[in-house]
C-alpha cells in the first residue's frame, strides 16, 4: 500500500488547494490515496470528483477542519 499523498490546504488561499488537487488527480494511480486537509467543506471539489470518476470520504477533525480521502473509483 503506497503512502497517501497529502495536500495541507489549511494555510492556502482558495482555490489553491482545489488547483493542487486537480493537478494531483491526473497522476493518481489505482489504489493510491490523496488526502486533503481543509478548513472548509470543499463542495466544488466534490462536484469535480463526482464528474471525473473518483470516490471520496470526508471526516470532520476535532479542530473543525476537514480531512478528505480521495481514490480512483
Amino acid at each position: 500500500m503506497p503512502e497517501p499523498r497529502l495536500i495541507d490546504g489549511r494555510g492556502m488561499e482558495p482555490p489553491e488547494p482545489l488547483e493542487l488537487a486537480v493537478a494531483e488527480l491526473g497522476t493518481l494511480a489505482p489504489g493510491e490515496e490523496l488526502v486533503m486537509l481543509l478548513n472548509c467543506e470543499p463542495l466544488p471539489l466534490y462536484a469535480i470528483l463526482d464528474r471525473s470518476g473518483y470516490r471520496y470520504r470526508s471526516e470532520r477533525r476535532a479542530d473543525g477542519s476537514n480531512e478528505v480521502h480521495i481514490q480512483k473509483a
Binding site: P15, E19, V22, G26
Partner: peptide
C-alpha cells in the same frame, strides 16, 4: 479568475486542466 478557473475546469475536466488562477 476564480470563475474562469471553475468554468474552464468544468468544461475541460482533468484531461485539459485550466491555466493557473
Amino acid at each position: 479568475p476564480f470563475l474562469n478557473w471553475l468554468h474552464l475546469q468544468r468544461q475541460g475536466g482533468t484531461a485539459m486542466p485550466p491555466p493557473n488562477m
